[in-house]
């Protein structure tokens, strides 16, 4: 499975860059894992992107997982009330 390490700063520019990468992976039909262990800054735009890419697709679509989440990412998700949508609470390691 392909691993994509998320940028430390997922601000609007970071989200734009990451969205392009995720689109490319998605278009390639490749299953991949997102490593969120290095995320230091993330806001709503970044959380929305993760929700977008992690949302279960149609059967047969490539699998996407968030395998690690930094403290910043976890706290942002919990603050926004979207931890469950990202599967952070139950499934993801705390990461570095």
């Amino acid at each position: 499975m392909t691993h994509l390490t998320l940028l430390p700063v997922l601000d609007r520019d970071g989200v734009r860059v990451t969205a392009g990468e995720l689109r490319a992976l998605s278009d390639a039909g490749t299953s991949f894992a997102l490593d969120g262990s290095r995320v230091e800054r993330i806001g709503l735009a970044g959380l929305q992107l993760l929700i977008s890419v992690l949302r279960a697709g149609a059967p047969g679509d490539p699998e996407v997982q968030l395998v690690k989440a930094s403290t910043a990412l976890r706290d942002a998700a919990r603050l926004a009330g979207v931890s469950a949508l990202l599967g952070i609470e139950a499934e993801v390691d705390h990461g570095a």
Partner: peptide, 11 residues
């Protein structure tokens, strides 16, 4: 993700 707009708010 293919329709995702980084500049939009959805939540």
């Amino acid at each position: 993700v293919d329709a995702f707009d980084p500049a939009a708010a959805y939540v």
